[in-house]
């Protein structure tokens, strides 16, 4: 660009010479770095800030409201922090909501019932899902992807509509009763809708893929040589399954069970569509408390109690996930 140097240009260059050796881009980035803003930190900050704002803080707010009192106001609760006349701040914690949960049989029964339904469904999912996952893991690689796809496919279709499908199958003039009566096996329809049975069925049906996938991922990695070694050392196939396959698939069993158990405890859609009015589940109680009774503090206390109840399974799940990620 020597040709482009006009006297004016040269003058300008001279004028700016002292600052020219520091390019503006560099000086900005240097300033930012001095303030602790580097590319690396910015990259970390984006997801961290988002999750802090929209995941963690909301929980703090639920916790706060669970200690507030119900009030006929908008929003319908009292403020924890109150300012006295002398501008002194006082924090008023109200444990009444939690006491209410313990004292009222409804909530205790709902928690126990949710736990029972979730537990039984989890065990059933495991019993149905384990042989399925094992069968897929042992099939030829070409078939494996197709079978896996068949297991995942229902998950891509609407959850709500799959639960709805059972309404048509289970109701008094539904598919099963029509079939059985048509064959002359029964005269009166069997009542299946609005029973706990329907809720179990719905949960097992909806969450079965969540059990199969982690189990499959685990069983697929199982070294066939280990089973051959067991056979070689005199172990019959079923015993080899008990001594080798089952203990080694424990991480898969835990992951699958937690993926079924945890959401099943808080399940709302299935008990409200398939369950009867007396199918008490905590997710449904929370919904009613919030939308029908508009008692936000109690609803919040119900949520916090549910979370406390689920902390152990959630931590168990994360522990095994981390351990699997490390190996």
């Amino acid at each position: 660009m020597r040709m482009g140097y006009t006297p004016l240009g040269q003058g300008l260059v001279r004028l700016f010479e002292p600052v020219m050796h520091v390019s503006p881009g560099k000086s900005v980035s240097r300033l930012l770095r001095a303030a602790g803003v580097t590319g690396r930190n910015a990259v970390i900050a984006i997801p961290l800030l988002w999750l802090l704002l929209f995941f963690l803080i909301p929980f703090v707010i639920v916790l706060k409201i669970s200690f507030a009192e119900y009030a006929t106001a908008i929003p319908p609760y009292t403020d924890l922090i109150q300012w006295g006349d002398d501008a002194l701040m006082s924090i008023k914690l109200n444990f009444g909501n939690y006491l209410y949960l313990v004292e009222d049989d409804l909530y205790v029964a709902a928690y126990l019932n949710s736990a029972r339904i979730a537990l039984v469904s989890t065990v059933m999912c495991l019993l149905i899902g384990y042989p399925m996952a094992y069968a897929i893991a042992r099939s030829s690689p070409a078939n494996r992807n197709i079978l896996l796809m068949l297991v995942i496919l229902p998950f891509w279709t609407s959850f709500l509509l799959r639960v709805y499908a059972w309404m048509g199958i289970l109701k008094n003039n539904g598919v099963i009763n029509n079939l059985l009566m048509g064959l002359g096996i029964i005269d009166e329809p069997i009542v299946m809708m609005q029973t706990d049975f329907a809720v179990y069925l719905g949960i097992i049906y909806s969450y079965l893929p969540f059990m199969i996938l982690p189990l499959y991922a685990n069983l697929e990695k199982l070294d066939v040589n280990l089973l051959e070694a067991a056979a070689d050392l005199g172990c019959k196939p079923f015993k080899a399954f008990l001594l080798i396959t089952l203990p080694l698939s424990l991480p898969g069993i835990i992951a699958g069970s937690m993926l079924v158990f945890i959401p099943a405890v808080g399940e709302f859609v299935i008990p409200s569509l398939l369950g009867g009015p007396d199918t008490l589940m905590i997710g449904r109680v929370l919904w009613d408390e919030f939308f029908n009774n508009r008692d936000w503090p109690v609803a919040s206390a119900v949520a916090i109690a549910m979370l406390v109840f689920l902390v152990i399974p959630i931590m168990l799940f994360q522990h095994y996930q981390n351990r699997q990620a490390q190996t």
Binding site: D223, N225, L226, E228, A229, A230, A231, D232, L233, G234, C235, K236, P237, L243, I244, P247, L248
Partner: peptide, 27 residues
Amino acid sequence: PYERPVNMMFQSYALFPHMTVQGNIAF
């Protein structure tokens, strides 16, 4: 295989990862 008086040392060793050395040998 589980009734043959034959034992094999696998190329990958196929040691049972959830058992101790003792447990593997005693299996």
